[in-house]
Design a protein around this nucleic acid. Structure first.
Ligand SMILES: [Mn+2]
Ligand SMILES: [Mn+2]
Ligand SMILES: [Mn+2]
Ligand SMILES: [Mn+2]
Lengths: 230, 230
DNA sequence: AAAAATTTTTAGACTCGTCTAAATTTTTAT
DNA sequence: ATAAAAATTTAGACGAGTCTAAAAATTTTT
């Protein structure tokens, strides 16, 4: 009766699942191997603890690990990471769509729910939600088969003047950022048209939903994804 | 990044929550104090481990504990136990009503979901489910204020011949038992009329939904609750 | 190509929850 | 009222996951 009893193979601890997920995210956002320090920062632990865990994950063949050289997920490791991310994002959809939580509130709860281990539960949840493609932040939901759908959106900060599109996602997920977007009316799916880019601070002026104009700082603009399909 | 980081007061580990819940259940079904051995059996651990944990729970003022004399929940301990039970039963309703799981499948998943700690989540889930009074097994759901609604049903095995009533709950929760009920058609809410009690083996003959008759072993009958309101 | 700075790993220790084996207390049987 | 049996607690150990401090490897600077 500790936190969890790991019965079969293919059962990993919360901690292991969190490391795998974190390695996946870090690998996705830089080239090359994921470093011990970046993992320590991301998981709010110390490098020494990360080293220990990396050794264990390597023993379990979930990562490729050469001492001092950083890590990379094995196929099995990636499969597992995507499973966790799938669960996380499905629960976020549930919390937002069904329970009415704001997109700024769902992440923390999903951090716990993502570790509930029942294949059948995930399948049924997926069906109940109507097989959503994206979570409340616009992030794609990995398929049951363990494939991460690719999306190619552009940062609002990098799109040429005159571009019109929709807000499709965010790169920053902090409640503060999301609440700021709520306050300024930059919701997911809203139509934006870049009217002007200020050269000295890279802030942009956009028109929202063909209605009012809005000044958007570069800080915000570079964390907003818009579809670049025209 | 271990199983869970316990931030504030009023945050307890999965293990602690499980012990409290178990003490509550054991206290409810016998008179007097709950014994170390019964807890060890119920939690599938050893008596030595239980002793350790009881010392810790007593330090945290969650139980009254006199060595060798068994334990009893404090008010705070009971408040917490009821909170866990409330979460468990609400999740069971969700799994059965919304996701379509059978009543024989929901318990195990609820054992994990009951530890998700967010007051707001429980409130919203409760509302989403329409403030259910009972879980899929007919067990009452503790109120948000921490009160366990009392129900007084009778075991089918103890009701006089001629009694007519409805199946309102079960005392045994194993998947095997519940599947057996499914197979024989003894669902929750079905109308039963006791037609005969066989004296030598205490089995009963009941009429279901004013339709077909059914032979029910005493083993089954004493785990079935019927409303005794006439 | 050294030296200095940085990153990573190792060593040793701690908490939580568990275990087995042994000691102690309580209960039951004689 | 003792002795035997059963229940409970203590002692000592272990694995998971974490920490700090120190050692080792790598990278950067000079
Ligand atoms: Mn999230
Ligand atoms: Mn998300
Ligand atoms: Mn249950
Ligand atoms: Mn139940």
């Amino acid at each position: 009766m500790n936190g969890l009893r790991l019965r079969s193979t293919d059962m990993y601890s919360f901690t292991e699942e969190n490391y795998l997920k974190t390695i996946y995210y870090l690998a996705a956002r830089q080239e090359g191997e994921v470093t011990t320090n970046s993992l320590a920062e991301m998981t709010a632990t110390k490098a020494a603890s990360v080293s220990d865990m990396l050794r264990k994950l390597a023993e379990k063949q979930l990562i490729h690990y050469r001492k001092y050289q950083g890590v990379r997920l094995t196929e099995e490791g990636e499969r597992l990471a995507l499973k966790v991310i799938r669960r996380h994002r499905l629960w976020e959809v549930f919390l937002a769509e069904k329970l009415g939580f704001g997109w700024d509130e769902v992440h923390e709860m999903a951090e716990e729910l993502e570790h509930i281990r029942s294949e059948e539960l995930v399948r049924k949840l997926d069906a109940f939600l109507g097989y959503p493609q994206f979570d409340p932040h616009g992030d794609p939901i990995p398929t049951p088969a363990g494939f991460m759908p690719s999306v190619e959106y552009s940062k609002l900060s990098e799109v040429p003047v005159g571009t019109e599109g929709r807000v499709m996602g965010v790169l920053e997920h902090s409640p503060e950022f999301l609440q700021h977007l709520d306050k300024t009316g930059l919701n997911l799916g809203c139509r934006v048209r870049v009217q002007e880019v200020n050269n000295f601070d890279k802030s942009v002026v956009v028109q929202i939903n063909r209605d009012k104009t809005l000044f958007v700082s570069n800080e915000v603009a570079r964390n907003l994804l818009v579809d670049s399909d025209h």
